[in-house]
Computed example of a mutant assay.
Amino acid sequence: MIPYGRQQIVQADIDAVVDVLRSDFLTQGPVVPQFESTVAQRVGSAYGFAVSSATAALHVACLALDLGEGDWLWTSPITFVASANCALYCGAKVDFVDIDPRTYNMSVEALEKKLEVAKKIGRLPKVVVPVHFAGQSCDMRGIRALAEVYGFKIIEDASHAIGGTYLGEPVGNCRYSDIVVFSFHPVKIITTAEGGMAMTNDPQLARRIGLLRSHGITRDRAVMTHEPDGPWYYQQVELGFNYRMTDIQAALGLSQMARLDEYVAARHSLANRYDKLLEDLAIVRPWQHPDAFSAYHLFTVRISNRPGNRSRRAVFEAMREAGVGVNVHYIPVHLQPYFSAMGFRSGDFPNAECYYSEALTLPLYPTLSTQQQDTVVSSLREVVKA
């Protein structure tokens, strides 16, 4: 089976991990801050905090922004559930903003209309979480302009997007947001096996994220309630979590960062080849906004559900039978049973639901061979035309 996504582990990665295994520190050692510094410098942010997953990063980001009971977080319905769950962890409520039908990112137009209504009824969001779907940045300049009018904070869910750019600058620099979150899951652009990172330029947010990922414990005398009892002393000053990343994971990530540009270039080369090979097929290929340079985490096509066409489900099942591990990204979050119990219904976000009914993710990862890609294309061509 050709998978839809796959990590690449080379000897340099293995050597980096083994070096840590032979060192004095497996966790809370020097490699985590090296990894954080490398990512922060690469994307142009002041601070980076490595954590155990992107979900953990979203959670501490919400807490750092004081999201809590009575507050609202808005995000895209086309995302993994973590983009919404992070609000629920904090006791806040969740709502969604429909997507742009071309980019599949949060629609700025839909956001503005929803904000106008929310202001009238006194239900403005405290936090908005735009999701850079498939690695292509949202219109962050437009979202930031609305934040300045309506007063909400912004967490960019850039889980798909490290290595991408927006308006010529790296995704992750926090120019248009308060916090940016990356994911390092094995199918993402680079991997630490499991892991994530929260980026910010705000020193106060940085202090809180650093505390919250590690039990709320500090050794910083400046934030203690009294002078330390001795050099061993620490204080818990907030209720935090054990969301730390190990040095083993950070070593893998640090090694992978050396190939970030290579990985993104390989993804673009494969995506461009898909575009050429599929241009005569009756499917919708991904559209790229000129303001963004995608990291191309996913290559998602749309199979038209018009009468007479083969259904997306039929295409999915036939592709799997042909040994091609296609996938679907994503089931709209508001249609999940847990969220339906909150009152969300089919029809609430029509662009997202229309997209979902047609979406099919094709294999895309740096080590996908030309032969494998040809197999994907020939299988899709045969299945769709059938």
Rank of each mutant, 00 (worst) to 15 (best):
A92E: 01
A92L: 01
A92S: 00
K93P: 00
K93E: 12
K93F: 00
K93Q: 14
K93H: 11
K93R: 04
V94N: 00
V94H: 01
D95P: 07
D95R: 06
F96W: 01
F96D: 02
V97L: 10
V97F: 08
D98H: 07
D98L: 10
D98S: 01
D98C: 04
D100A: 11
D100P: 12
D100S: 05
D100L: 07
P101W: 10
P101L: 08
R102S: 12
R102Y: 13
R102W: 07
T103I: 11
T103G: 01
Y104K: 13
Y104P: 02
Y104V: 15
N105W: 02
N105R: 01
N105H: 14
M106A: 08
M106Y: 00
M106D: 08
M106L: 15
M106P: 09
S107K: 12
V108G: 03
V108Q: 06
E109F: 10
E109S: 11
A110V: 11
L111K: 12
L111W: 10
E112P: 05
E112S: 12
E112G: 09
K113F: 05
K113E: 12
K113V: 03
K113N: 13
K114E: 13
K114P: 04
K114T: 11
L115H: 08
L115G: 04
E116I: 12
E116V: 09
E116Q: 12
E116M: 09
E116N: 05
E116W: 02
V117Q: 15
V117H: 14
V117T: 15
V117Y: 12
A118W: 03
K119M: 11
K120Y: 09
I121Q: 07
I121R: 11
I121E: 09
G122I: 06
G122S: 04
R123V: 07
R123A: 13
R123H: 15
R123E: 14
L124E: 12
L124K: 12
L124F: 13
P125C: 03
P125N: 11
P125Y: 01
P125T: 03
P125I: 00
K126D: 06
K126T: 07
K126N: 05
K126C: 08
K126I: 08
K126H: 02
V127S: 06
V127G: 10
V127E: 04
V128Y: 00
V128F: 04
V128G: 00
V129K: 14
V129D: 05
P130A: 08
P130L: 04
P130I: 09
V131W: 01
